[in-house]
Amino acid sequence: MQNSRRIILRYKSGVAFLITAFAAFMASGANAAEPKPWQMNFQPAATPVMEKITEFHNLLLTVEVGIVIFVLALMLIIIFKFNAKSNPEPSKTTHNTPLEVIWTVIPIVILIIFSVPSMKLLFFMDKAQNPEMTLKIVGHQWYWSYQYPDHGGFEFDSNMIPDEEIKPGQRRLLDVDNQVVLPVNTEVRLLMTSEDVIHNWAIPAFGVKLDTVPGRTNETWVKVTKPGTYYGQCSELCGVNHGFMPVAVKVVSKDEFKQWVAKAKKEFAKVKAAPVKVVEMNTPVQAKVR
């Protein structure tokens, strides 16, 4: 795998046609979920999980804004009523047990109200009902690679398109050469790990954000309900190019997905055959032998 990757990279930098081929793919991504200028809220939810997160957050936000306004109102009253001019004689009150009980109990009640939907959401996210397929995600410094173990196990790397190669319609720092393709309305198991440092695979519109930790495989799931192209970025500081390893997922109909798989198998199988040759070369040992 190690050597194949190096070959892939060399292959790509030499021949630009892969990029050109996939530019066509990306142009067709019609309803893209991406951050918009001056956006103040979540990106539109594309999965049941994100819908539930948005809903729960709306509850939290409403109550929290209420608390802030309440405190602000009290402070304004204090400013206008209890300044030295309006109220020259300070009161001597230092205790009011009922009041103290109230401001302890009411927050507790609010927190209990929060905790019920919170727990529901948490356990809903954790449970993968019955995933129909698996996507394996591996974090690297500084790109992602993807495997489709249930579709013959082909794999490919996904690198950010550098600024100078951005074409009109592409999103700077978000678009990649090889997008992940997933079928719509399909439960997909996501297995994540890393081959070097900790990264984090995140797509805001999916409500998915999970660390890729070297030496362990994390699992989550996603079921995208709307076709389109979705963007995210690495969300754990992973070194120099942490800001330059975006995630781009293209969600298509199940039929289109089948066609894509057939095409991708050929496309990426070719690249994958490379390691056979590498063995004959005198590959320098990369292992840090202490």
């Binding site: 795998m1 190690q2 410094q141 790990t193 840090k288």
Partner: peptide, 15 residues
Amino acid sequence: VRFDANVNKLLPWQF
């Protein structure tokens, strides 16, 4: 039971 294999970057193995 599904089987999954990974190799750390610093180990030049296939697995």
